[in-house]
Amino acid sequence: MELTRRGALALGAGAALSLVLPAASARAAIEDSIANFTGGADIGEGGITLTTPEIAENGNTVPISVAAPGAVAIMVLASGNPNPDVGIFRFGPLAANQAASTRIRLNGTQDVIAIAEMADGSFVQVANNVKVTIGGCGG
């Protein structure tokens, strides 16, 4: 299994960071999803952009955009969700660029991860932290 940078961080950081990092079972789910997508290939950085709000007013509807010029597919993961999978965007010949926007559910403050599969079979990733606020009024 590929040990991601984030996975390494989680393993090395110990208890102090355990409150903000996914629990072990969730990390396993993330790593499984990544392995399924990459087939265990190395994952680099650069060439992929993930746009997320710094603070999401409500975790039910968080607008995100991903872009990776030259990618054939981009996978999005929500590392703090019970099921981290968000979706995989596959781009066809008539996609003007390898970019898409959607709205997603985030189960609390967490990192959103995007991994692109490039045309040459290489992979790159990016992660953004999104703070999800808990509103004052349940209305």
Binding site: E57, N58, T61, T133, I134, G135, G136, C137, G139
Partner: peptide, 27 residues
């Protein structure tokens, strides 16, 4: 001001029925 993490508005109702992100529906 903030009430927990919510930014309190003046409470006008000119935007109703309102689509709330929280419920993903009209209120």
């Amino acid at each position: 001001q903030m009430i927990r993490a919510d930014h309190l508005s003046q409470g006008h109702i000119n935007g109703f029925p309102t689509y709330r992100l929280r419920t993903a529906g009209l209120v």
